[in-house]
């Protein structure tokens, strides 16, 4: 396997799907010659032309709504939403329109569209360009939600998303665009199915269940635990909807201890849902309280002195993991 960046992996996935299926097109703000502010899409307009890589005006509700209409009528749009924070602008189109077409029509209509956007703080982008809003859309039945954690995941999940007949929101971690990792050769097409979590490490003492950027935190925390003589299961959730409950529960039933990590706000977030299912369905296997690590319940601050501490990190994860394993968690 070669090593490429997350950004290249996304670019390849889109290019391959555009080549494969002429009904696929992509639009968004500054996606063509500019290739997005993150340069993820550079080179695509040169190959596929402005008919398929389409620069839109700065009108998020408009072009998301139009993508719904286009998806209803025989095409498979990929929409680039420049920042995850802009989801708030498109809520009606995404949650009232895209998510409900199949259901409201009794299964007669479908909306095969992909909304690519991003998440992640610590880029010093402050409160309106740093949010991780996956829980917001995962809450709405009818939408699927994918969270790639590596270049390989980014490519495999995005290709699956394009081929899915439902609206899929895929969150890329904007800090990860330059991260490198192994990705299969283009001729070895890899589609990563939705609803199958990925166990990255196997251990006995604790389960670390994580999404997107937090998978890396979990992996490093598992390293830290190894140094202390403990081992952890590390599970990449991959898709919040559909959620692979079985893999998570099997791991927790084995270890009896779990930390759930996700970069969205802690309250009412993805970690809460996963923790709740664990408490509900693996209760008698739990040997320690279920711990959740999400972002602090504050708007993301600008100053580096303030921002970094608001997202889960390796040190705190290890510290808490050791407390759980050693039975040192203060009782309520």
């Amino acid at each position: 396997m070669r090593t490429i960046t997350f950004s290249q992996a996304v670019n390849e996935a889109i290019a391959e799907e555009l080549r494969r299926d002429p009904t696929v097109f992509l639009w968004g703000e500054d996606v063509a010659e500019a290739g997005t502010p993150f340069k993820v899409l550079s080179g695509l307009v040169e190959e596929f032309g402005p008919e398929r890589i389409i620069d839109t005006p700065i009108s998020e509700p408009g072009f998301v709504g139009m993508a719904v209409g286009a998806a209803l009528t025989g095409t498979r749009p990929i929409v680039d939403l420049m920042f995850g924070d802009f989801l708030f602008l498109v809520m009606d189109q995404l949650c009232n329109q895209a998510a409900k077409q199949s259901y409201m029509s009794g299964g007669k209509l479908k909306v095969p569209m992909v909304l690519r956007t991003n998440l992640g703080a610590t880029r010093r982008s402050a409160a309106q360009h740093s949010q991780s809003l996956q829980a917001l859309v995962a809450h709405i039945p009818g939408l699927k939600v994918a969270l790639p954690s590596s270049p390989r995941e980014a490519k495999g999940l995005l290709k699956s998303a394009v081929r899915d007949d439902n609206p899929v929101v895929i969150f890329e971690d904007k800090l990860m665009y330059q991260a490198k990792g192994p990705v299969p050769e283009p001729e070895e097409e890899e589609l990563i199915p939705f609803g199958q979590a990925n166990r990255l490490q196997e251990g006995e003492d604790l389960s670390l269940v994580a999404t997107s950027s937090m998978v890396q935190v979990a992996e490093e925390a598992a390293e830290g635990l190894r140094a202390e003589g403990y081992s952890a299961d590390v599970i990449d959730v991959r898709t919040l909807v559909p959620l692979d409950e079985d893999t998570i529960l099997a791991s927790v039933r084995k270890t009896g201890r779990v930390i759930v990590l996700d970069e969205g706000h802690q309250s009412y977030g993805a970690t809460a849902e996963i923790a709740s299912r664990i408490a509900d369905k693996a209760f008698y296997h739990l040997d320690a309280p279920v711990t959740r690590f999400g972002a602090w319940d504050v708007p993301v601050p600008f100053s580096p002195a303030l921002e970094d501490q608001t997202v889960p990190d390796v040190a705190r994860t290890v510290e808490r993991a050791l407390q759980l394993i050693r039975g040192e968690v203060a009782r309520a």
Partner: peptide, 30 residues
Amino acid sequence: SPKAKAIAAAHGLDLAGIRAAVGREPLHAR
């Protein structure tokens, strides 16, 4: 912990006795 309770129940062990032996709460599976 729920797991500790489950094991104790399965073996008919008395948790209060175990608490007295180990001298702290909460009890864990180990």
